[in-house]
Design a protein around this nucleic acid. Structure first.
Lengths: 215, 215
DNA sequence: TAGATTGTTAATCGATTAACAATC
DNA sequence: TAGATTGTTAATCGATTAACAATC
């Protein structure tokens, strides 16, 4: 097993599929499966085995001819490629329902996200204990970021507050922003902004239901 | 303005962008903007104007040469294409944090989703009132679905319960399932399953942070 | 009218798939 | 060894972009 280290350009379409590989391999690891072929795994995932092998080839060689892949090795490799081992220090801003859902989300910590602080501007929420962390006043956010060396900020505020929170996060030195507010975030190029628009899935569902016969 | 009705095959890549058009146009409608050109809107969205016009052309003609698009007309057209006006009857199963987040999510009802019932299996949650709806025992789900003619089921249960809930939803006659559980759902071809895997966005963020220099 | 911008065609670019030599 | 399956190349397929005639 070799992980490629050189300067390879990974197509965007491949990057989008990496989390899916992670999810499916995690299940196989939990099931205790020892080996899997590209054909078996690809059928499980609903893609072609060609695509699976092609995708992996951007990162290195993880299998053995005539055998397939060792599940645990491939899983480890995907984790490393994704940077899951990194344990980024994180704050979450906006302790409403969505924020709480994320805080309590198993996969949050399982994926190696290290939640250090929760912030809100609502006096009736500030001071509350959620999953072992006390909700802090958002006014103290910027100082906290610099003091603690926070690397990721999660925005689960209403759309109207999103950009101003993002500005504070950026001023506070975070490298990445995970934005759930249905609001475009302006940020300098070196700050990575990942948007998750939950409502989009619903609209896709509507569309497919309406146009079922066409697809 | 003409909406195309014939049997056109819409590329998957175009369908994926429709919710984004909806989001951005909604903002422009709220701002009270009257007209917008493909160049202006595309710059806002970070795509090319070619792509915007090409995408719209799959559904009809919505603009005027030399003028651009009437914002409200284009917004209405996108809503109709997406099937937002339909008011699908919906139940949500799993009243944990994520379920509550969705129930309280403005865009849920704004997009025309008609939430009729909330179900859970936790005795301490059953009977609770959330946003005007009483949480029901999941044991009564199937009968309820048939009686009320429910069309969409939202699954916000743990992964372990997802498939069995999906089976009940399917037996109860829903046409679409919006699945948030990190679990593949098996369903017959005529049932549309839309998966929203929240954790995937986090992994994309990790990857981009780790490989920033390569992209 | 002159200027602007659409809708669409054709060219380019990128992503997926098929096929197979290499090899465990 | 014989069978199986990888990693990779080349061919196919699909998506994006550039360009422009049509026209408001």
């Amino acid at each position: 097993m070799t992980i490629r280290t050189g300067p390879v350009v990974v197509p965007a379409a491949v990057i989008k599929r990496l989390p899916m590989y992670y999810r499916y391999l995690q299940v196989l690891v939990e099931e205790g499966l020892e080996r899997v072929s590209s054909r078996e795994l690809s059928q499980l995932m609903g893609i072609t085995s060609s695509q699976l092998r092609q995708d992996l080839s951007y990162f290195g060689e993880f299998g053995q001819q005539g055998y397939g892949y060792k599940v645990s090795e491939l899983y480890q490799a995907i984790c490393e490629i994704l940077g899951i081992e990194k344990q980024y220090k994180t704050v979450l801003v906006g302790a409403g329902n969505l924020g709480r859902a994320l805080i309590n989300y198993q996969g949050f910590s399982r994926r190696g996200l290290n939640l250090k602080g929760i912030f809100d501007n609502n006096p009736s929420v500030i001071g509350e204990n959620i999953n072992g962390l006390t909700v802090c006043n958002v006014e103290g956010l910027k100082d906290y970021l610099l003091k603690e060396g926070i690397q990721i900020g999660v925005i689960t505020t209403p759309a109207s507050a999103a950009q101003s929170i993002a500005d504070i996060l950026i001023a506070g030195g975070v490298a990445g922003i995970w934005n759930f507010a249905p609001q475009h975030i302006n940020a300098p190029e070196n700050i990575i902004v990942e948007n998750t628009h939950i409502g989009d899935g619903l609209l896709s569902l509507f569309f497919k239901m309406k146009h079922q016969e066409r697809l």
